[in-house]
């Protein structure tokens, strides 16, 4: 269990992390979501004892990371933003060094083989890390976090710079890890936390702006109110007509054009599904609808929405 209380990190006059508190229970998979520079890495670096806090405390299974760092660190496997790999070692040598460094006491050969199998680096175990691709390097980094079977695995942006297939692999790996370990990962990609995590902590400008189970988080943000609709017909009349419908907040022309059809960005008020009424309205007028797609929310939109729905929490 990780308990974080009133954690603050100040760099000069800048508050990188500004008074955050939360608790992570055993077995949870938690995602830190936030844009670059939100304070995710700084928070993780403080949990792992790489940085010290300006004030506040971090305790891992009751061990304070600043007062009994060795005991606390033993419980944590950490993959920093940039995997700390010695590029002049082979994968096996590197993992074997990490094993010794962590002072593990298992059957070394067996344990390392298991870890390598889990992250699928067994086929490159005798190659120099220098010569590996980015995806493999990342996996070796994850492997080093797993060495010694720590209770808690902390992964800082584990999928950055990977190709789509590797991302899928790593995500399913993380889900698997969640069965035996507590996992904390950070990302600025919303789909990633939705796909992998059970709980989402949203951080922006050093503050927590949401801390919810993924399901309720999805409910809060997934209500789509914006659609891109392609309609054939006279654009000015169409816009005027749509704007006159009940529940429509705005209707703007989006640049795309296909023959006599234009795309429109239509936004409705909250809690109203306008799709059916829109369809009927257009059908009545004899303007065929050629396509409709929801416009996904960008991270910034979510922040705005979260900040707005939480009222004065900011």
């Amino acid at each position: 269990m990780i308990e974080i209380k009133n954690l603050v990190k100040r760099f000069g006059n800048h508050f990188a992390v500004d008074d955050i508190s939360f608790t992570i229970d055993d077995g949870e998979i938690v995602g830190f979501l936030g844009p670059n520079g939100a304070g995710k890495s700084t928070t993780m670096n403080m949990i792992t004892g790489y940085l010290s806090s300006t004030s506040g405390s971090v305790s891992v299974d009751g061990y304070d990371i600043f007062e009994s760092p060795v005991e606390a660190k033993r419980l944590i496997g950490f993959l920093p933003e940039q995997p700390p790999l010695y590029i002049d070692m082979t994968v096996w040598e590197y993992l074997s060094f990490v094993y010794d460094l962590k002072g593990c006491d298992f059957n070394k050969q067996k344990h390392l083989t298991e870890v390598c199998e889990l992250v699928k680096v067994l086929d490159v175990k005798n190659r120099l890390i220098r010569n590996l691709s980015k995806g493999y390097k990342q996996r070796v980094g994850i492997a080093s976090a797993l060495v010694g079977n720590p209770k808690i695995i902390i992964l800082d942006e584990p999928t950055v710079g990977l190709d789509p297939k590797q991302i899928i692999d790593i995500r399913s790996l993380i889900r698997n890890l969640g069965k035996k370990h507590t996992v904390i990962l950070s990302t600025h990609i919303m789909q990633e936390v939705q796909a992998v995590c059970e709980r989402i902590i949203v951080i922006n400008q050093g503050k927590i702006i949401a801390d919810e189970k993924t399901a309720s988080f999805n409910n809060a943000i997934n209500q789509n109110t914006r659609y891109r609709v392609k309609i054939a017909g006279p654009s000015k009349e169409i816009m005027r007509h749509i704007r006159s419908l009940v529940g429509i907040v705005s209707c703007e022309l989006h640049g795309e054009r296909e023959g006599d059809a234009f795309s429109y960005d239509i936004e409705s008020a909250q809690n109203i599904d306008i799709r059916k009424s829109l369809f009927r309205a257009l059908a009545d007028k004899g303007w065929p609808m050629l396509g409709m797609e929801p416009i996904g929310m960008e991270l910034e939109d979510i922040f705005l929405k979260l900040i707005n729905t939480k009222g004065g929490k900011k």
Binding site: Y50, P69, V70, I76, P80, Q82, L101, K102
Partner: peptide
């Protein structure tokens, strides 16, 4: 420079 110190500084050693 290569950030490998992060491994050493977060490992369970003093």
């Amino acid at each position: 420079r290569t950030k490998t110190e992060q491994l050493l500084l977060t490992a369970p050693i003093s």
